[in-house]
Simulated scan of single mutants.
Amino acid sequence: MYWLRLSPLLLLLVATACKKTILSETVNPVEEKPTAPSSFQGLIIDDERHPIPNAMVFCGDLSTTTDSSGHFSLSNVTVDTNAAVISVKKDGYINGFRTLMAHAYGQQYLEVTLKARDLTTSFSGSAVGNIGFTGANIVFSPNQIHTASNQVYKGTVAVAVDIIVPSDPDHPTRMAGDLRGIDNNGNVVGLISYGQVAVDLLDTSHVALHPDGEHPVNLTVSIPGPYRANAPAQIGLFYLDTVSGYWKQETLGYKQGNEFTGNIRNGTRWLFATTYPQVTLDANILQQVGVPAGNLLTTIATKIDFIPTYSYTNSAGRYLGRVAANQPLVLTLTDPCGNLVFQKEIGPYSAYTTLDLNTGNLAICTP
């Protein structure tokens, strides 16, 4: 299976990823949106890495559907190039949301894994909804669930939940956003995840519902085993803003035993995370002159603490993303079959950096 080849690397990255928060005086305030046209290509798959055909893919004011092989293409979409948002919907699957930096007038590649919806759990919208899952517990208030027209919904609410921890082998493609957030001071920061929860709420006709944004949702998430010893007493509790693409800190969560718990009002994607400063890396990655290292999963982690960021090279071998500031880094490339095909130490970087990187000939599989 694809991810079994990759999991040793990911387990190395995440086993110590939360030992500490990188400290720096440098912060990155939220920038004004630099809008420009860009194009996107990608692959939508399930958690067994089977392609998902006929999934709806949305970006900006354009949409398309995946073909029989799960591939899609969107051209000349006007986006915020700092945070382009791709959303994916397919009946029977939990909705996917991905954020990525985009080359103005260029092209990006990405993969998104969708988790099948399990709708066997439900509650009445007029009563307390105390929903327990392995690894998470969610409590909704009575009359908190609204329809798309913001009317109180008192019928049966079906709940589909995806709990994502950094040790999950498909974390790079299943997580929402891209592990960038906006903290309470308005700074754009990197996020060290301690657990992410995605929730889809549906009425009896499988039409989407949402919390009202006024009453708190109580969220409790189990702290993954490798993180428990060094887990902080309090931690940022973020929700995914599906318009801007950033995780936004709303409040704090608190450690209780081996769990984090907190109350949050916004969104239906939630994340407990600590933060660290980042800079932008713009890399041109070639095997040799004229031969790009194209469409490869690119993991850039801190060398000391193994705190990862994820993105993809595009078909021309271009990488654009945010990485930890002022830290020695390790860049790895993974092919479509999950094989680690390249690794190199890079950095540290204290400001926006462009990089030309020659990998030499890579043994890249054809899935």
Rank of each mutant, 00 (worst) to 15 (best):
V188Q: 04
G181L: 04
A148T: 14
Q151Y: 04
P166Q: 09
A176M: 12
D170T: 06
L179Q: 10
P169S: 05
G135W: 02
V152C: 12
N150K: 14
V152I: 15
D200H: 06
I163A: 06
V159M: 12
N185L: 03
T156E: 09
L179K: 00
A136N: 01
I145V: 14
A198L: 15
T121A: 08
N150F: 15
L119P: 04
D200E: 13
G195L: 02
Y153C: 10
A198Q: 13
G195Q: 05
K115R: 14
I138L: 09
R117W: 01
N185K: 02
A176P: 03
P142G: 06
G125Q: 13
S122D: 08
I182G: 03
A176N: 08
D170P: 07
R117A: 11
I163N: 01
V157C: 04
I163W: 05
L202V: 11
R174T: 14
V199G: 10
Q196M: 14
F123G: 01
L114S: 01
L119D: 01
A136T: 05
N185Y: 06
P172E: 13
A127P: 08
A148F: 13
V157M: 07
I138K: 11
N187E: 09
T147W: 01
S124W: 02
T173V: 11
L114W: 06
A176E: 08
K154S: 15
V161I: 12
I138W: 12
T204H: 03
S193E: 06
A158P: 00
N130F: 08
V139Y: 06
T134K: 13
G177E: 00
D168K: 08
K154H: 14
D200I: 08
F123T: 10
A136D: 03
P169Y: 05
S205V: 02
P142I: 06
Q144W: 03
I164Q: 09
D118R: 01
T113P: 08
